[in-house]
Design a binder for these strands. Structure first.
Lengths: 220, 220
DNA sequence: ACGTTGACTTATCACTGATAACTCATCCCG
DNA sequence: CGGGATGAGTTATCAGTGATAAGTCAACGT
């Protein structure tokens, strides 16, 4: 019988002895492609992935313990690029405040350009994942970069001497809030994205700068 | 065969003629309970719901077109309470700035106490849902409440005359950012939640208050 | 020439959301 | 009291999901 094999790759030549890893790479690539196409991680099925690569479903389990591990491995790659993209944006200027702003812009842009990985990394309960520890490591590193950037703003006197940790968390949550809602509620009547991000960054800067408001201005 | 019927309700007396709605209510209640128990909407299956209520799976489709509609109906209820809770918190003081702070605290608290509904309402692509329009209406109303609250801060001179719309969006995204990340990444070494929320609110207040920073303060 | 073994397949499981077709009691109308 | 009509739910079943156990088969080292 052997009905027409799905849609794409007819079949795939069996890898030679030492070259089992090539399938692993192909699986990652195909999964990433399908994730981008469908826009949702659980819309891509094990069978669709297997079919796209030209193997049978169980072959996947020779290279990944389960589906979420495969998905997470794809996201992990994105996260590396994510971190270095934000870092690069932050290093593109010497002004620490402007650097933070550029980090924020880069963060949001990356999230919007890779919504599904972003969703998986930052918008789902992550606990239960296998290779999660690796991600935690990478995440901790990225977060430390942010704390350092905030510290530089404090050192130059641009920011008042707040706790850099809580300030960094505040900035992260603010930037994540924009990214997250833009992804989740695309139908909301959002203003121009750049303007929104700039507003958020400006609020953070004004909120953290070196000025102590005595009492509110011209109230009645 | 008729194996032991799942775990709970053996069976359920057939409703009388006009009382089909009672099953609908029971379904909503059971779904809500299971959602809270399992902590995830797609961990509760149609079969589990049917079993908990004591009917067979297809009966559910007499009252809801599909599973997501059922889930959304549950979330919709939460949303009503959500909106009115935040509103009540906001009305508990006359100071408009303090009012905003209380709204923020109530928002985060509610999100953390109802993480799965919050996730479904604000952290998933919502487009594809049937009864989504209703929610959009309720959401628009809640959002308008926030804009009004911001406007009051501007009117009293507490906030400088910014665009209340973009200021409200900024506040919303900030508060959502905290809520969302606290839900998604519970293993992150968060500081005290109240302190974090207060920080976020303070940043917003300082960022929006009536003061124009000429240049940064006491730098070296 | 042969057995080991890495790479993959066949067959199947338990479960998911969903649908078509059927039963059956209740109610209204005569 | 009798007989449809119909609301309320059931039985049986479908296609698709992630996952596993057991088998196949060719390449390699000896």
């Amino acid at each position: 019988m052997t009905a027409v094999r799905g849609s794409s790759a007819k079949s795939r030549p069996r890898s030679r002895r030492g070259e089992g890893e090539t399938l692993r790479e192909d699986l990652l690539a195909a999964t990433e492609r399908l994730m981008i196409e469908t826009g949702s991680a659980d819309a891509v099925s094990i069978r669709a992935i297997a079919d796209a690569v030209g193997v049978t479903p169980p072959s996947i389990y020779l290279h990944f313990p389960d589906k979420t591990s495969l998905i997470l491995a794809v996201c992990e790659r994105h996260f590396e690029v994510f971190d270095s993209t934000v870092e690069a944006a932050g290093r593109s200027t010497d002004d620490p405040v402007e650097s933070l702003r550029r980090r924020g812009r880069a963060y949001v842009r990356f999230g919007l350009e890779n919504p599904e990985p972003y969703r998986i990394l930052f918008m789902t309960r992550a606990e239960t994942a296998p290779q999660y520890d690796t991600l935690v490591g990478a995440g901790a590193r990225a977060f430390r970069h942010l704390v350092d950037a905030v510290q530089r703003c404090i050192d130059t006197g641009a920011y008042r001497p707040v706790d850099p940790l809580i300030a960094a968390i505040g900035i992260w949550t603010a930037v994540h809030g924009v990214t997250s809602l833009l992804i989740s509620l695309p139908d909301f009547p959002w203003p121009n994205v750049d303007a929104l991000v700039d507003h958020v960054c400006e609020i953070q800067n004004r909120g953290l700068n070196d000025f102590v408001p005595e009492h509110q201005g011209g109230a009645s």
